[in-house]
Design a protein around this nucleic acid. Structure first.
Lengths: 149, 149
DNA sequence: CCTTGACTTCGAGCGCGCTCCAACCCCTAC
DNA sequence: GTAGGGGTTGGAGCGCGCTCGAAGTCAAGG
């Protein structure tokens, strides 16, 4: 479920939607997806998307009426955030990371350091998880309901 | 600790315990470990050990003064609980599991079912984790600070 | 016109898993 | 006897990451 697959936006469109070939369900509006659409595509609730914005993880442009319009970049960021959250990166760290991103170019080394540190933690967590899984599997295999190896 | 330092004294006392020869630091006391000792051995704080007991994850026998004395079985259970927690099994499920254990023999199938279900979830989580890790590693490798694959 | 429904903001609330405090008890050492 | 360092209890508090409710705005449809 990569972002790219759902993001074939070719919006060199002038203004009003030209009746192109539009997938059943949901067409890209003029430019940008509504919050509900992003919610459905990413599996993140609209509530949580707003929450992410409130705490500064991303900034989403609005239409004339003040409604959020997620473009490709915003959608990609949401997806990336979900990957970071899925690996249990604390919100504070994600904030720190995107703060660096917002600062613009020049600090890529620090961003990389953050990501690499996190990557190492994830690897360690996977290792722990596998070790604990081993214990559980052993318990299952030798089931006696009581003690452990 | 204090147990070790006190052993050569022989206070003329009317009470029970006759101290044996005990190696320094961490010998098993008469029978059972103090909560502090278990905390140090398992890495679980004494607070949390009491909490686990409060919520019914285990029952720990007491000495005459009402202090907890962890035996081999209790220690083993604490260790097993840490393995379950390490794999993010919710406390409620752990409660459910040990409730079955306390019920005594006859429900091993249900206990096994619980453990096996959890094992499967852990495996799934590891897979998710590895997939998200892949995304992060890709991002690191192709670093451009911005979008995702 | 009025309704419907998706959106907006702000702020409060919640579930989880601890974590900590206060007050008290008990045992030993000095 | 007194101090100190363990232990005990019950209950309150906390940090995290959402999650939800209330009240309002806006645009389209009947």
């Amino acid at each position: 479920m990569s972002a790219a697959t759902t993001l074939d936006n070719r919006p060199p469109e002038p203004d009003v939607a030209r009746p192109g070939v539009v997938p059943p369900d949901v067409a890209e509006p003029h430019e940008g997806l509504s919050i509900a659409l992003v919610a459905r595509r990413t599996g993140v609730t609209a509530h949580t998307l707003r929450y992410y914005e409130r705490i500064g993880l991303l900034a989403v442009p609005r239409d004339d009426a003040g409604r959020r319009l997620y473009g490709a970049a915003e959608l990609a960021r949401v997806v990336f955030i979900t990957r970071l959250r899925m690996t249990a990166m604390p919100i504070r760290e994600i904030q720190a990371y995107f703060r660096l991103v917002e600062e613009g170019p020049g600090n890529e080394d620090r961003r990389l350091a953050l990501l690499e540190a996190h990557r190492d933690q994830v690897k360690a967590r996977i290792a722990d998880l596998e070790s604990a899984l081993g214990v559980i599997e052993f318990k299952i295999a030798t089931y006696g309901g009581d003690c452990v190896p």
